[in-house]
Every structure is written in C-alpha cells, then in structure tokens.
Amino acid sequence: MNKVKAASVNELKHILYLPRFLPYRLTKLSGTVSRDLAAQYSAAFDLTIPEWRIVALLGSHPGLTAREIAPLASLDKVSISRAVERLVKAERVEKRTLDGDRRSAALYLTEAGKTCLGEIIPIAQHYEDQLLESFTPEEIEQLDGFLNRLDAKAEALKEGD
C-alpha cells in the first residue's frame, strides 16, 4: 500500500496542475478582470486595455515617458507606442519633448483625457468594490500585503536572471 502511495505522489511531482499553479491563477484572474472591466469602458470611451492603463498612470503620474510607463503598466514597447499614438490622435494625451533628449517625450493628459479618466474612475472603483465585497477590511489589507510580497519576490527573481 505504501509503495502505491509513494508512486502516486512521485508521479504527481511531474504533473503541473494548473488550477493550483499560482502563476497560472494570477494570469487567469488578471485577464478575466482586465477583459471584464475593459468591456465596461471600451465601448463608451473607445479605449483599449493598454490605453486605459496609460491614461490611469498619467492621471496619477503626469509627465512619464513611454519607457517609464512600460514596467508600471506591464506593457511591451510596441503596445505602448500604438496606444500612445492612438491617445495622441484622439487628443487625450499630448507629448512634450524633453529638454536635452529630443528622442524622448513626456506624456500628459489633455483636458479631454482628464475628463475621460474622471468618467472611468467611478466605473473602475465600482468594479473593484464588487470584486472585494465578500472580503472584510482586514482581509483586504492582508490581500494587499500578500500581493506586495509576491510582487517584490517576483521582481527579485527577475533581477536574479
């Protein structure tokens, strides 16, 4: 009997059970939340997920460059470039060339961008409230702490590469 259990446990070590694999669960949750939230504002505001992330970041950190936005928004260079160009064309974001570096531009929300963000924030906050409504304030603080720890550990592992 013990030999059968040992063999089963040994076999399980070589199987990746996705429903319990943290990276998969985080990716799945992130994708579900991003798509669901985007569905609520994309039609009304004509924004893609990368555009929304850029608008939100510039709302709290005006003057970021595309290079600075990339890690904060978890977006690649091509996605950021396309999103910024669409936002500039829609007159929601303006580029200001940096002194001393003509190749880089600081990005700022225009009045139209600020208005758009002001209309989206309540939608995003309502979604977050719904997502967390079954958690106590203490559990939300714990979750925030766990996510901060996971984020820091993932950054440390990335730096170790």
Score class of each variant (00 low, 15 high):
R20L: 09
N2Y: 04
W52T: 15
D144E: 14
F21R: 04
E111M: 13
N2P: 03
N148P: 04
M1S: 14
S8G: 05
V84T: 04
E138R: 12
S81F: 02
A70P: 00
E94A: 07
D46C: 07
E159R: 13
L72Q: 03
H126K: 14
R103A: 06
L12E: 06
S79P: 01
G145V: 06
E91C: 12
I121T: 07
A83D: 00
V93D: 01
G100M: 02
I120H: 06
G100D: 04
A83Q: 00
G31S: 09
V55E: 04
A44P: 03
R67H: 09
W52R: 15
G145K: 13
I123R: 08
R67S: 10
A154R: 13
E68N: 05
W52H: 15
A152K: 15
L109H: 11
P19D: 06
F146P: 01
L109M: 09
K95S: 11
Q125R: 11
R92M: 13
Y24M: 12
E85K: 12
A7D: 12
A38G: 14
N10E: 13
Y24A: 12
K153V: 04
N148V: 03
A7S: 13
V93N: 01
I80L: 01
L132P: 11
V4Y: 15
I123H: 11
D101A: 10
S104V: 09
Y41E: 04
T48N: 04
S30V: 03
R103V: 05
K28W: 08
E155F: 13
F45H: 13
A6G: 05
H126C: 08
H126V: 06
A56T: 13
G63T: 06
S60C: 11
A83F: 00
A106Q: 05
D161Y: 15
P62S: 14
A38K: 11
V84P: 00
V78R: 11
E11Y: 14
A124C: 10
G63E: 08
